[in-house]
Design a protein around this nucleic acid. Structure first.
Lengths: 125, 125
DNA sequence: TATAATGTATTAGATAGAGTAATACAACGA
DNA sequence: TCGTTGTATTACTCTATCTAATACATTATA
């Protein structure tokens, strides 16, 4: 999996790494049980510090997305716990994005289409 | 319009103010041409510094949402320029939110419903 | 047994952004 | 003239981010 860092973004590097891995899992690009690059390998590849990658992995571990092990390194968890609800923070963010899009003249259908695209195949479909 | 600041949030205060005003405009709570509180009044009311509010207003002005005038203070712009598209940043954010929701077991329909709710009545409906 | 690789902890420092604070200025109405 | 408006300026504190250099425990492998 290719991880790209936007140097101009105000989103912290470790957060960008974390986000892209989460999206990779959701997309199916990263499968359950799959091993992630080692912190050293990823840090070397991206030209950043080891601890920056470690922070991303720690957060992912704390959130239940991955497991870390000195034996196998970092792997995607087999069964990610399902809260079943959207966090208040994400709800507020979603409302902000929808509001900005609406004021920019983006049709509602375009937003719905994007959500469909990003969500992908639903197991309930 | 009531603006609430989440002290625990890692979103900067001036950004929270900016976001809530944008959402207020989209919701119709703030109408075109309506006058916003003065920077001093809002700063006093919220117990924050004048310049923090000024930063929020400057950003809103730069983005085309409001107009500032020494005569009338800050007002919502009559005609907000419509780009017609969603910014790359917001697209990435939207994908992140959708991915997290999906992995949390939130059904696609729930997300679509939220977007509908936040968007409100579409002029094209 | 020795070596290498794993995630992690520790400590320190540099840098930038956020927020506060105190003033001051120009523009405009009353 | 006086008050209010947004804004500019300057300085300071505080925090988060990121880098840097090590070190440690654990485990597979030669």
């Amino acid at each position: 999996m290719i991880i790209r860092i936007d140097e101009l973004s105000d989103v912290p590097i470790y957060q960008q790494i974390r986000n892209q891995i989460v999206m990779g899992i959701s997309d199916g690009e990263l499968k359950a049980g799959e091993q992630l690059p080692t912190v050293r390998a990823l840090a070397l590849e991206m030209g950043i510090n080891t601890m920056t990658v470690s922070k991303a992995y720690q957060q992912l571990k704390m959130e239940g997305y991955i497991m870390t092990d000195r034996k196998f390194g970092a792997r995607v968890r087999m069964e990610i716990e399902k809260q079943g609800s959207i966090s208040d923070t994400n709800k507020t963010e979603l409302k902000r994005i929808v509001s900005e899009a609406r004021l920019s003249g983006v049709p509602k259908q375009e937003l719905l289409r994007l959500v469909e695209e990003y969500y992908g195949k639903d197991s309930q479909d």
